[in-house]
Write a protein that binds this DNA or RNA. Structure first.
Lengths: 141, 141
DNA sequence: GTGAAATATTTAGCCTGCTAAACAAAACTA
DNA sequence: TAGTTTTGTTTAGCAGGCTAAATATTTCAC
């Protein structure tokens, strides 16, 4: 009995995250961004000039993934890279004006999708949902 | 106020799905499977011999994605493809014995991760969580 | 029956993601 | 100071995922 609930939760979670990813992807393409790049930029909006290592920790992904993302974002003119002056191994990532200007439109896309996702779910339920998700998060780490 | 909750839910959702995907990926590698292939096989376990089109609808992904997944699964000997006799455009996908034998180990991996994810969440809370996720699902489609 | 439209798949070329292995610079350590 | 280990990044190659465009077959309409 219980396991059926679990199973549906797994399936629902799978479907939801795939669907969300697709929808975000579609919207972000209008800004010439690929899904995932928004999160990298988000980190830079609050702490410009961090290293790729720090990005990889924040994004919870492997260093080669950051190398690729950063390369793509640089080619599209959203960021630029500068070797650290004190540690020649490290690369520091900075936003260009083009990258800085994406903050508002990206936040607006996030808001739009959040509203769609949480439509007809009350504030109390949202708080409960958040609590359960935080519980699941701590279960995973 | 409310938007802060929404925002955290977006972030939590993002983190959770990325983390889940990584963990599933790791476990599935032990079966020589890549993440996502388990869902394709799952569909075949209950309906062997369907077309790629049907798979793409079930998996909620684009046809070229199915082409790639199917190619990889075929090369690894989990499935085989056969052209439909009545419609020469369509490919029908069948499980090999090797593919059929994966059902139990894959279900066991799913169960393991579900238990980890939902640890310390009561049955009532799980039911509520499922209801909220179903609500979100219907909001997206 | 022939031509146009719809359907199923594939190809090419991107993206995020991964692992394994290479590389370069820095930090230890003897 | 020289040699080893650790750290930060990159390369190569593969996976799922996408779009745009090509291909082949079927269907539909005239």
């Amino acid at each position: 009995m219980e396991s059926m609930v679990d199973c549906e939760i797994r399936e629902l979670f799978d479907k939801l995250s795939a669907r969300m990813r697709r929808e975000y992807s579609e919207s972000l393409r209008e800004l010439n961004l690929y899904v995932g790049q928004d999160n990298l930029l988000y980190r830079l909006w609050s702490s410009d000039g961090i290293t790729q290592m720090q990005l990889s920790e924040y994004l919870n992904c492997e260093p080669p993934t950051v190398t690729n993302m950063v390369k793509s974002l640089e080619q599209n003119g959203f960021i630029y890279r500068k070797r650290d002056e004190k540690d020649a191994r490290a690369m520091r990532i900075f936003l260009t004006d083009k990258g800085k200007n994406l903050e508002e439109p990206v936040r607006s896309i996030w808001k739009k999708h959040q509203e769609k996702l949480l439509k007809s779910i009350s504030t109390d339920e949202r708080l409960l949902l958040r609590r359960l998700m935080k519980q699941m998060e701590s279960n995973l780490f």
